[in-house]
């Protein structure tokens, strides 16, 4: 039973991180119908920024919890800046081009960013300091759930709630939903669509950066390649839940995280990534619109 619970909570943690990344995919896809391939790289850049800031602060002797807070804030700022810039450089000039063009541009951007970080930093695995504190009250549950797992799950839940409220009630959130529904109509009623698209990229990138710092601190090491696999898996989660739907992305991430945890726990850990890809292929074949997505008629 303990083993089951451990796997379940591990899956919950995984799912939380996937959710944080998947939200960015799904928001961008909802608005401009583009798979932002570079999104996984934003997550990686967030983790690297967090590492650099944390390293600096540790050296100057800052206390533990403030390091985590400042590292997360810096990671969010820079990841958001990268997201904003990528949209302006690689996607905006291609609006209205053929469907394949922005996608190829996105793949190019992803390759570029990976190699940029590799050349500027290193191609080796870097140890990531443990930023999340150990709580005393978690000692008794140490065998099934660690403090960092608890922090990750709680942080994800609060971020998801905040995002849902933001999308539902704020002016910008409403503008986003309007743009996702019909970009031309949104323009006609006076929504600054370019601004909304930029905001989407900024928000999505910030969420990915939060995920990046938290998971890096939990696992304890990063390298320039982590964004690729995480990005594909988060995309799987977004598709699983129905791409374009925000609650769908959260649900899909949870399902994916749990599936992976149980499959590696009970079947075989060698094929961890294969399970995720198989799940992706199967969903796309049998239910391409996802769990919570709507079936869309093809327009002529």
């Amino acid at each position: 039973m303990d083993y089951f619970l451990e796997l379940f909570l591990g899956g919950l943690t995984r799912g939380s991180i996937y959710a944080l990344i998947a939200l960015g995919y799904t928001m961008v896809y909802g608005i401009i119908e583009l798979i932002n391939f570079a999104h996984g790289e934003i997550y990686m850049i967030g983790a690297f920024t967090g590492l650099i800031v944390a390293g600096l602060l540790t050296m100057y002797g800052f206390p533990g919890v403030s390091i985590l807070a400042i590292a997360v804030v810096c990671a969010v700022i820079w990841a958001a800046a990268y997201g904003y810039t990528i949209e302006k450089v690689a996607y905006k000039p291609l609006r209205g081009a053929q469907r394949l063009s922005p996608l190829i541009s996105a793949i190019g951007m992803s390759i570029f960013l990976q190699n940029y970080v590799m050349l500027a930093q290193t191609s080796d695995f870097l140890p990531f300091p443990e930023l999340i504190p150990h709580f005393g009250f978690m000692e008794s549950m140490g065998s099934i759930m660690s403090s960092s797992e608890l922090v990750i799950v709680l942080a994800t839940i609060s971020v998801c709630v905040a995002l849902t409220l933001f999308i539902k009630f704020t002016k910008l959130g409403k503008a986003m939903r309007a743009t996702a529904q019909n970009r031309k109509m949104a323009m006609l009623v006076g929504i600054n669509v370019d601004m909304v698209i930029s905001a989407t990229f900024v928000i999505g990138s910030s969420l990915a950066a939060v995920g990046g710092v938290l998971i890096a601190s939990h696992i304890g090491q990063i390298n320039y390649y982590i964004g690729f696999i995480a990005g594909i898996k988060a995309f799987t989660a977004a598709v699983l839940g129905g791409i374009g739907s925000i609650p769908g992305a959260m649900l899909g991430a949870l399902v994916l995280g749990l599936t992976e945890a149980f499959a590696t726990g009970y079947v075989s850990s060698d094929y961890e990534d294969v399970f995720a890809f198989m799940l992706l292929v199967l969903i796309l074949i049998f239910r391409p619109s996802g769990i919570m997505g709507k079936e869309k008629a093809q327009k002529v």
Binding site: V89, L94, S101, P102, S105, G108, M109, I111, F112, N115
Partner: peptide, 9 residues
């Protein structure tokens, strides 16, 4: 990567 983006743009 850079050339892929530039060519597309």
């Amino acid at each position: 990567g850079a050339i892929m983006v530039l060519v597309m743009v």
